[in-house]
Design a protein around this nucleic acid. Structure first.
Lengths: 244, 244
DNA sequence: TTCAATCAAATGTCATGACAAACTGTCATA
DNA sequence: TATGACAGTTTGTCATGACATTTGATTGAA
């Protein structure tokens, strides 16, 4: 049974439940609250931090959803082991977007506007024959090729330039254009390298590739991007944490 | 603005917020509430069903988490388009476990107890040199091979027999033994088929395979299963819906 | 006409109070 | 000794009430 000292700022615009949840989140990830630790019950926790019970519960619910603690009625709340730790869910799946165009270098091979094939315009929810951006990029890490990325975007979401893509990265350009990008439908499969892929990725023809197709959606469910990426299988895999 | 008629049973053991959420969930998936539909505001919804506002909110929160609706402060609640629809999150990732051993047939190739290699015992959180079940199965769909599945389980979680596995499937055996199986850490990559895999899966040596490694955990985060599965890339891929 | 201020509507946050249900351990009884 | 009843603890569910914040539309003035 461990008590945690945290500072709560009632004048902050950050919701109280979020302040509490973040503090516990950090404490757990930092090892201040090691796995198996039993937390105080929510009533006394609420009292300790001068919060109402619903607010305390809201914080705890978030920790449960993030896979940091388990709660059992009549028993209490326990810190869960490290294998779970959600959070990573995005890192591996989004990192082609999130990383800037800098250290993990991204070369823009192609940037053009084309009339979309039917399969593409369908994925993007556009009328048949609509114009879209088409870009092809090569991702390098430590100067070694990792992925060949092909993306299609509606012309309306943002203005893309080769310079912008190389300096800021696709994700930042979209964000500045007011795109949330909060959901994505992904499909992960496999294939073997053809000639172009092999030469770009510096592997033999016939090598294993991880294939990922993604439709990126904003918070209202409108498609903003469709991507077809192939990764060197010897250097990349997708990590996923499932819950519930 | 659409009003939905639903029946709420206050004497049911099912929580009210869950009854409401399920009803909306069904209505949306059945098309009774098509995408873009604007829902009534939560105050009048609560009044309509004789619920308190927090209860109504709890129901709505669940719909948001499941990717069925979007809420915007000052605006309202809208039904989201079908590309999102969470739920599938498990189907494609768990189906090797969930399906029974019947129609999508599963052949048990190997069932034995062995001393675990270090990498396996580590994944399962067992001491070095611990005994574990080791099973190798072939999954067929429409009488055509789909996947070669290799799994390791602690001896303590359940008692496995070849007959049980073939008639009931691994998932049901575990469930009957009182295992929740609520979380999983998965890694999805690619490889090319070696001789054994090729002959089992009836593909050429060097064909593309989807490789999946999974550690299955119960609700308290204790590992209950580790699996290494390879799928024919021409017949299988993983669908994932990401949110937030 | 255009822009800014204001107002209404909707969700977000927070508090207090109450009862229900599940689990654990203890104690009494057979 | 073993089993069942009971009480205590803790989370789960639900209600009522209040104020804050964001958004969109309306209104008014320049």
């Amino acid at each position: 049974m461990v008590e945690l000292e945290i500072a709560i700022d009632r004048s902050s615009p950050i919701p109280l439940y979020h302040q509490v949840a973040s503090a516990f989140d950090k404490a757990i990830r930092d090892g201040v609250l090691p796995p198996e630790t039993k937390l105080e019950n929510e009533i006394s926790l609420a009292k300790r931090y001068n919060l109402s019970r619903p607010t305390m519960r809201q914080a705890m619910d978030q920790l449960v959803r993030d896979g940091l603690v388990v709660r059992r009625r009549g028993v209490g709340t326990q810190v869960i082991g490290p294998p779970v730790r959600r959070n990573l869910r995005l890192s591996s799946l989004y990192n082609d977007l999130q990383d800037e165009g800098a250290d993990p270098e991204t070369q823009v091979l192609t940037l053009e506007t084309i009339t979309a094939e039917e399969s593409i315009s369908e994925q993007l929810g556009l009328p048949k024959g609509a114009e879209v951006y088409h870009l092809k990029r090569l991702r390098l890490v430590d100067n070694r090729p990792l992925a060949l990325m092909e993306n299609w975007l509606p012309l309306t979401v943002a203005t893309l330039t080769r310079e912008g893509l190389e300096s800021d990265g696709l994700y930042n350009i979209l964000r500045r254009a007011g795109v949330d990008f909060r959901m994505a439908q992904q499909k992960v499969g496999a294939d073997i390298a053809n000639h172009e892929q092999a030469s770009r990725l510096k592997v033999d023809v016939g090598s294993a590739l991880v294939v990922m197709e993604r439709t990126g959606l904003d918070s209202s469910g409108t498609p903003v991007e469709f991507g077809h990426h192939v990764y060197r299988a010897d250097r990349y895999s997708f990590d996923i944490m499932l819950m519930n």
